[in-house]
Computed example of a mutant assay.
Amino acid sequence: MGPLQWGDVPTAVATVFTGGAAWFAYQTIRSQRQQIGEQQQFIAEQMRFMGEQRQNLELERVELRATAGERRAAQAKRLSMRSRRAGASADGVGAPTSDDHWVVTVVNESDAPVRQVEVRFGTAYNSAEVYEWDALWSDAREQRGDRLLQLVEVIGAGRAVRFESQRYSAAAVHNNPPVVFFSDGNGVRWELNAQGDLRETNQQPGNPPSDQ
Rank of each mutant, 00 (worst) to 15 (best):
E38I: 05
Q150A: 10
W137T: 05
N202S: 14
P10S: 08
R120D: 04
W133E: 07
Q32R: 03
D91T: 10
Q27E: 10
W133K: 05
Y131R: 07
G156A: 11
D111I: 05
R84P: 03
R189F: 06
Q166R: 05
L136Y: 06
E45T: 12
V130N: 02
R61C: 03
A128N: 07
T97P: 04
Q116R: 04
S138W: 07
S83I: 00
M50W: 05
N56M: 14
W137G: 07
V13Q: 10
T105Y: 14
Y26A: 12
S210T: 09
P3N: 06
E60M: 13
V117R: 01
L148M: 02
L149A: 10
R162A: 08
R82Y: 05
V117H: 03
L57E: 14
V114L: 12
Q27R: 08
S183R: 12
I155L: 11
D8P: 03
S110F: 05
N193R: 00
Q39T: 07
V173K: 03
N108R: 03
Q41C: 13
P10D: 11
K77M: 13
A12T: 02
D8T: 01
E164A: 04
G156R: 01
R48L: 15
P3L: 10
K77T: 06
W6H: 01
T15G: 12
L4M: 07
F49D: 15
R199Q: 14
M47A: 15
I29T: 05
A124D: 10
P208V: 06
A128F: 08
N186K: 13
P178N: 00
P177V: 02
I36F: 11
Y26C: 03
